[in-house]
Computed example of a mutant assay.
Amino acid sequence: MTDPHLPGVIGERRQLINLAYRLLGSLAEAEDVMQETYARWYALSERQRREVMAPGAWLTTVASRICLDLLGSARARRERYVGEWIPEPIPIRSEWLDGPAPVDPADRVTLDESISMAFLIVLDSMTPAERVAFVLHDVFRYSFAEVADIVGRTPAACRQLASSARRRIQTSQEPSTPERTEVVRDFKRAWETKDIEALIGLLDPQAIATADSGGLAPAFRVPINGSEQIAHTWMQIAAHGPAITLLERTVNGQPGLVAQLDDTIVSVYAFDIADGRITRIWAIRNPEKLRPWTAS
């Protein structure tokens, strides 16, 4: 017999990937969570599925609990990771969710604000329970009663978790996209022309650059601190690295850069910007994390 919930269940695919990506920082793992969630749905008997009043809520609950379990084991997995770990960058195009771009303005805001690299980095500093409570409540607008059922704590405890997480999120006014685009474009031009003074001027004196290669590509393994040190490193890359082509691309909803070598994307660069200067650079070199880009 055809599952009467099938259209609604399949329609939750976007929601499940959106949720799992924000919770795990990995599109590959998010897709695995989605598949496991559907596997558990179809492992139910036909009678059990008919008894589910809200299949979407059931799927979200299961996906969130799977993510919570994965986050609990993430620390051990990170200890085995070679070098620094950075969330997987995603190209902002409709195909990354196998569907049309969101038309609801609220969806666009959610996509832009809650998948920026800076936002995901802060999420990664939270405890698993804080992260799940915050994302479900503040990003996906679930009530604390619903969050409590998922996390296995009281609504009051979940409120405290989300509040604790919220304090970690930077509340200062972020620069507009045109301002970010101009700064990133200037950085690209200075890098291409090997203008070290221009690079230093574009970087905050306390800027930090972090690279993620997973040991699978050449990269600096310890974060670089300070505008001059970062500029000198980028000059060395320009002078001694392969002849790459730099392209302006949207990275996690923000202006960024990708480096292309022989028609293959070998690096993705995300930036955080404040007061017209770059405060953070994230260089993702791990080819396993670049699959959504090479596939595009």
Rank of each mutant, 00 (worst) to 15 (best):
E31M: 08
I86R: 00
I150E: 09
R47I: 05
W41L: 03
R22Q: 03
R167D: 08
L23T: 11
Y142F: 09
G72D: 10
V62G: 06
D32R: 07
V103I: 13
R221W: 12
E288T: 15
Y142L: 04
E31F: 01
V266Q: 05
M34F: 04
R40M: 14
A231N: 04
R49F: 05
R167I: 09
T264L: 10
G25T: 05
R153N: 15
S267M: 12
L68H: 07
W191P: 00
W293P: 07
Y81P: 07
A207C: 13
V109I: 12
L16S: 09
P218V: 14
V268K: 10
L161R: 05
S163P: 06
L16W: 13
R167K: 15
M126C: 05
A217W: 12
D69A: 13
E79P: 06
R291V: 15
A118K: 09
A145V: 15
E288A: 15
G253P: 12
T181I: 03
A219G: 10
W96A: 01
N252F: 05
Y38K: 00
E174N: 02
P89Y: 02
L136C: 03
T193N: 10
V147C: 11
A101P: 06
E113K: 05
T250E: 09
G25S: 03
L123Q: 00
A39K: 04
L247K: 15
I278L: 03
P7V: 04
Q206D: 03
T264A: 08
S94I: 07
P205I: 09
G83A: 11
R22F: 08
R291P: 09
I208N: 06
G241H: 01
S296P: 01
R77K: 09
R78Y: 03
R285F: 10
D107Q: 15
P102Y: 11
A133C: 07
P4C: 10
S125C: 03
P91E: 13
L70R: 12
M53K: 04
K188W: 03
A118T: 05
F271D: 02
M1Y: 04
I281K: 01
M53A: 12
D32Y: 02
Q48E: 14
S26L: 08
V139P: 02
R249S: 12
E113V: 02
V266C: 00
W234G: 00
A63V: 14
D204G: 02
F271G: 05
G253A: 11
A157M: 11
A209R: 06
Q48G: 02
L257C: 02
V109E: 13
Q236F: 06
A274R: 11
V151R: 11
L24T: 11
A63L: 13
T210G: 01
A106H: 06
V184H: 01
G215M: 09
A274N: 06
R291G: 10
S125A: 09
G276W: 10
P87L: 02
V139L: 05
P91D: 12
A295R: 14
I265H: 05
D124F: 02
D212F: 11
C67R: 11
M1R: 07
A157Q: 13
P55H: 11
P178H: 10
G152P: 10
R168V: 00
T250M: 04
E12C: 12
I273N: 08
T210D: 00
R166P: 02
R77P: 03
